[in-house]
């Protein structure tokens, strides 16, 4: 283990993080053709809290989710789940530990086997080996009650449910495994807004009750703000900013600023939308991001508009810890040579 990796691993154990990624890179394709779309991700989720992963399409959000649940093996770095390094496990050990982290996929129409009743799907999650049928029935009723569904629906098939109901079933199945961590990947983006609120509230109440650790992946900053204690912002496969979710109201990174300003704000009307239209970086290839700071072609404070900022093109900014002045001592980090807010730059712990 290299010294640069050792420190985060030790901190993961000491601080009781439920889930950590240490220098994780991941991508698709094997052998020479493989290309990472996720680069050098460091993040930790404190036990019992919700971390939001925010980013646009192509930012690597879903790749990160797939890597964290072990569906995609990282090409570098390690993933720590409680006391084990899950990215190093294989075979039966991996299968056993996999149950500790569960995924709720985005599309409620694809995540349930069309040929399985809800009972069988939940039963399988409770008991994948098929050993103890005794308590399972009671547990299934309890799970369905948890997600506000009538226990009688257990004998139905997925196609008999609406999108919101299916998503609740998917949540029940994830809970059935009694995991330590749940990864919710854009769980409400396929739902109508009135149904979305229902699912969000359900996840919040479950977390309040069970103190489960949650990783909440979304493209919608208002949803992230509603759900998360902490947020991490991804841009073209790299973390550009992370910290307490309050950072959304005083971001250090120009990209986070741009995301926040892009959210339609009825109170402010059109004047609230960020004024400048910059299309330069749109459509950038995640597997082949711009050199230096990947955001520099779109950055309103960057080298495109200011001559003194050549550094953004030549040197990739590191994700450095900073403190904001609101007094809570919240940690936050931004990867920007010229951060927006006037805050003290920290020198690490």
């Amino acid at each position: 283990m290299s010294p640069s990796e050792a420190a985060p691993v030790l901190r993961h154990q000491a601080d009781g993080f439920a889930l950590s990624a240490v220098g994780v890179s991941a991508g698709y394709g094997g052998g020479r053709r493989s290309r990472d779309v996720l680069h050098d991700i460091d993040l930790s989720v404190p036990a019992g809290q919700t971390l939001g992963i925010v980013g646009e399409s192509g930012s690597g959000k879903s790749t990160l989710a797939r890597a964290l649940v072990g569906q995609l093996r990282p090409s570098a770095g390690k993933i720590l789940l409680g006391d084990v390094e899950i990215s190093a496990l294989r075979g039966r050990r991996l299968r056993e530990n996999r149950r500790r982290i569960q995924l709720i996929p985005q599309d409620p129409y694809a995540s349930l086997d069309p040929r399985m009743t809800i009972r069988r799907a939940l039963y399988e999650a409770i008991d994948p080996q098929g050993r103890r049928p005794a308590q399972a029935a009671a547990r299934i009723s309890e799970l369905l009650a948890t997600v506000s569904l009538d226990p009688d629906v257990a004998s139905r098939y997925p196609h008999e449910f609406s999108g919101g109901q299916r998503q609740r079933i998917a949540i029940a199945r994830a809970l059935a495994v009694q995991p330590e961590v749940i990864i919710a990947d854009e769980v409400t983006s396929a739902l109508d807004s009135s149904v979305q609120a229902e699912v969000l509230n359900l996840l919040r109440s479950i977390q309040a009750r069970t103190a489960i650790t949650m990783l909440f992946i979304t493209h919608d900053l208002s949803v992230a703000n509603y759900m998360c204690d902490e947020v991490a912002v991804l841009y073209l496969g790299r973390l550009v900013e992370k910290g307490s979710s309050r950072l959304l109201f005083s971001p250090d990174h120009p990209y986070t600023r741009r995301l926040v300003d892009s959210i339609p704000n009825p109170r402010a009307g059109l004047s609230g939308l960020s004024a400048p239209e910059i299309t330069g970086g749109e459509g950038a290839d995640p597997a082949n991001p711009p050199a230096g700071c990947a955001f520099h072609p779109r950055c309103p404070n960057g080298p495109r508009l200011r001559d003194d900022r050549e550094r953004c093109i030549t040197e990739r900014p590191e994700l450095l810890p900073r403190w904001d002045d609101t007094g809570d001592g919240d940690h936050r980090s931004a990867a920007c040579h010229f951060p927006l807010s006037e805050v003290r730059a920290g020198l690490g712990d």
Partner: peptide
């Protein structure tokens, strides 16, 4: 956020990433 982007900046090539 105060900076105003001049309209001329618009057509400038993006970070080598826009579709060629």
């Amino acid at each position: 956020m105060t900076s105003i982007i001049p309209a001329s900046a618009h057509g400038a090539p993006g970070g080598g990433a826009a579709v060629a």
